[in-house]
Write a protein that binds this DNA or RNA. Structure first.
Lengths: 179, 179
DNA sequence: ATCAGCATGTAAGGCGTTACATGATTCA
DNA sequence: TGAATCATGTAACGCCTTACATGCTGAT
């Protein structure tokens, strides 16, 4: 795997469950993965080429001849090895990059009003994202028999726990700023 | 400000409190800001040059002639305007990029053992970072009379609330995986 | 007929990291 | 004397986003 191109393992992970097109992969990433990882077409398609070159995945045309051109990818044994290697690496880059916190940190420049306003924008966004996560949670809990769904559910639960903490903090912070 | 170079506002924010060298700025970023924003010398020094060119900051030599070369930066009126503009922008890019969650999402490939191990690595790291934040909190609470410290304290409180939520989730997740 | 969504890609350019390069000072 | 820290920068390189380019299909 290219040293720092983490999109590779996202792709390998998704392909370990089922064969997908680049377009499908993008849709998957925009779904339940979206809150902790992103990916654009401009990163996915070049990665697919490079990974096929490296023998980790294998492309084939969809054989339902009626439809338009569609390139499906299948993970190879080599690809599974790379995926497993990554899963067993000790270090994991966890990165929080919150512009809202940056604005808060420098809130003294503009004062209470602006800062509270910024917190409220954040609060609104988190509330709406939380609803999406709760919907995912509901759907996943229905199918707990599926082994993989257990893992998906855990990430969703992480998001819910975190976002609820954010909202508690919003309330506290606004109170503190208003004295 | 360069369209997406957010390091600019970090620098402007820091310089709005006091004049600093590039080296000082790096140290500040590595401190309490570190958990929600990062910055390297390779991004700071070029940004300082560009921002001086743009008239947002002004450099001068430290006049204690005995010491080595040291370039201090001072924020200009123009710089303060840019900073305030940014503080009043409605959108803020908040991004979570957690490789641990990615590993969790694809945990089914390796199974329970590996997944729990990865959660435990995460848990350890969060615990030690939480301690650092609690130390910051303690120090900041001592000086609540300082207006700016109130804002710093709020970001630290955000971190503590969040990290404690992470730890609760870790316990829950491990329990769920062990059935 | 038209628009949203399906589907694949390329190109330009920005941002940022890591590593390198250099040298002074301070403290043990 | 040697190591850590102070201090400033450059160079190479990689990753990723945004925008562009193209065209089909299905639904209203």
């Amino acid at each position: 795997m290219a040293k720092d191109r983490k999109i590779d393992v996202v792709i390998l992970g998704l392909l370990s469950h089922e064969d997908l097109t680049g377009y499908d992969i993008k849709k998957r990433i925009d779904g339940a993965i979206n809150f902790f990882w992103k990916g654009s077409f401009g990163s996915i398609y070049p990665a697919l080429s490079a990974m096929e070159e490296a023998g980790q995945i294998k492309s084939y045309r969809a054989d339902d001849s009626g439809s338009r051109e569609k390139i499906l990818y299948h993970i190879t044994v080599e690809g599974i090895t790379v995926l497993k290697q990554w899963l067993n690496e000790e270090q994991a880059a966890n990165e929080l990059k919150y512009e809202t916190l940056l604005k808060l940190y420098f809130g003294g420049v503009e004062g209470t009003e602006t800062t509270i306003h910024n917190i409220e924008i954040f609060e609104r966004n988190i509330k709406s994202e939380l609803e999406v996560l709760k919907m995912y949670e509901k759907n996943l809990k229905k199918e707990q028999d599926n082994e993989d769904h257990k893992y998906f559910l855990l990430t969703v639960m992480f998001g819910i726990e975190t976002y609820e903490a954010y909202l508690r903090w919003c309330t506290k912070a606004k109170k503190m700023l208003r004295n």
